[in-house]
Design a protein around this nucleic acid. Sequence first.
DNA 1: CGTATTTGACCAGCGC
DNA 2: GCGCTGGTCAAATACG
Length: 370
Amino acid sequence: MIKEEIDSCVHPLDGGMAESDKEVELDATKAKVDKVRVENEKLKLLLSTFLTEYNSLQMHVSNVIRQQHEASMKLDDNGHEDLDVDISLTLGRSEQKISKKEEQVKKIIAENNSINNKEGSEKKIWAHGLGFWIQSFEDLDTNQTMMLDDVSREVKNKNVENKCLSSRKDVKTARNEDQHELLEEHEQPGLKKTRVCVKAPCEDPSINDGCQWRKYGQKTAKTNPLPRAYYRCSMSSNCPVRKQVQRCGEDDTSAYMTTYEGNHDHPLPMEATHMAAGTSAAASLLQSGASSSASLSHFFPFHHFSVSTTNSHPTVTLDLTQPNYDPNQLPNYPLSSSSLSFSSSGRPSPSKSHTLSFSGLRSQAPMNTY
DNA sequence: CGTATTTGACCAGCGC
DNA sequence: GCGCTGGTCAAATACG
């Protein structure tokens, strides 16, 4: 397409140029066009991957909502009175913290109910990490899901007001103190924040994930000669989200490992919300995975990814460089087709490791040519 | 000149 | 206690 346009533009200039010069220029232009086309294909692949994964997550959410609704209906039939169902998928938080969070969310939702929803219908709250919250009603609609950032911010503000002081010493500035408070807001004792690693085939380490990032450091680890760049989110003055970008290998110039950590304290652009939804779905495995392996098959049926929990950072690694395409499973996508293997080291150890591998289609969305 | 990036120094956590 | 390492700070530098 671009190539044809350029070709059509080249011909009218035939006039005074030597034939050999024109051929050289044409070859150079063709090479450029081919390069652009390859990059275009890569970007399209990446985009379609994110879209399908987002759709998968959305279907999973709807499915679980329906199941929860049916379960609550059964409970009602059996004489139980609990109507509120609050489900929270969070990153690296203790059970106690989750309970507090749930209470706060209930409180906030109750307030929102009195203000925004006089009908007082039953609500179910879904909370994901990385600042991505889904507020759903019995029928999920877009207006309601758009409230997720407001709810998240409100909960965060209340947490900051009530939280205990940081135990760290020698914080240099007030700004640093604020940042530490935000950074440690969701940490549980002995377990650091959950990280989400995304290994993506991208020639440019500054992959556009929808957020604005400011580089604040670069370090070369001894164990890995390749430099690691440190970025912080610059969309908000005190957004605690950090990301690290590191090339995966010296000879592998087309893949970068991007590690996200923390929750955004500001509304995200749509593309960043999609990204957060995808990574949050992966991160939620850290909490749901050990207890319910069946539910794992709903997340990311397209790629290899691994979940590891150590004393330091619980980490979800999503590998977008290894598509696991199986065309035979295409018709049954997404809920019943994904094959799932789940292994866990059985020996008692401070660190546990789960390895997940899915077989699914690379991309459900049709590949449009632009 | 304002903003973003680079890079050496510093600090905290961890293992020995 | 000491050394190593990862992560962050902040002054210097580059860039538009």
